[in-house]
Amino acid sequence: MADETCETCLSGTNLTKIYAFGKSRTVAVDNINFCFNAGQVISIVGESGSGKTTLAKMLLGLTNVTSGQIYFRGKPLDISTSKKRKEYWKSIQAIFQDPYSSYNIFTKIDDVLLDCIHLRGGRKVPKEEKIAMMEEACRFVNLKFAELTNKYPFELSGGQMQRLMIARVFLLKPKILLADEPTSMIDACSRASILEMLLKLRDEINMTLIFITHDIGLAYFISDEVYIMEHGKIVESGSADEVILNPKEAYTKRLINDVPKIYEPWDLSTVDYHL
């Protein structure tokens, strides 16, 4: 479905992932098609087990595709050799759900950021310049570099860790950022700032943001396009306003209906205990 009309960044046709262990087979992603445009924010929304993370791992090239094809900038994605994989990985970065397991606990924060500079060919840059770059990245996510030096990531709060992740991405400047539930382990109070920083980052380095979440409210707030996933299938997609304000599918309606709101009443009468 390599669409000619839009500048596609990532797209997929008949993408399927089946986990097979002996006789048991789990169809985690079931024959889906999508087309993510460059520079947009795309949300993938679904409940637990709907296959969001599996799709993310496939897009990142971290797991094999069972069948179907991913296209990167219109060309079939080829990551069969480690060299090609590394080339692809220069254009894509990720932020994962659990900030506590996203860092190597043996690496200090300075080294986390320094590593990003080195990976972008900044090994020969003078030391002062490197520090200036790290300071800039920290300032971008409202952290103070001076307070972070010589600390380990696990000494920060969950929200700060995720912000540091964004600082990393800021230094790496990828074409695509895939954020897999980056705020689901963060309390609601720090969530807003992380979302804003992601949007700011998108504007700053002009990347495509793929935002995976189970919270349809977040998806609505952040994205241009929304894909709703249920049991490995995409049941509805379209622009955020279209999908959230005028949902067509029963599943989408239910998802929206189930979220507590503040302007409209939250309808609890529909709850069926025997679901």
Binding site: L60, L62, K86, W89, K90, I92, Q93, A94, F96, Q97, D98, S101, S102, Y103, N104, D115, C116, L119, L172
Partner: peptide, 11 residues
């Protein structure tokens, strides 16, 4: 673990 995945992505 995610930190290994991130390391891979970082090249």
């Amino acid at each position: 673990r995610d930190h290994v995945n991130l390391s891979k992505l970082s090249g």
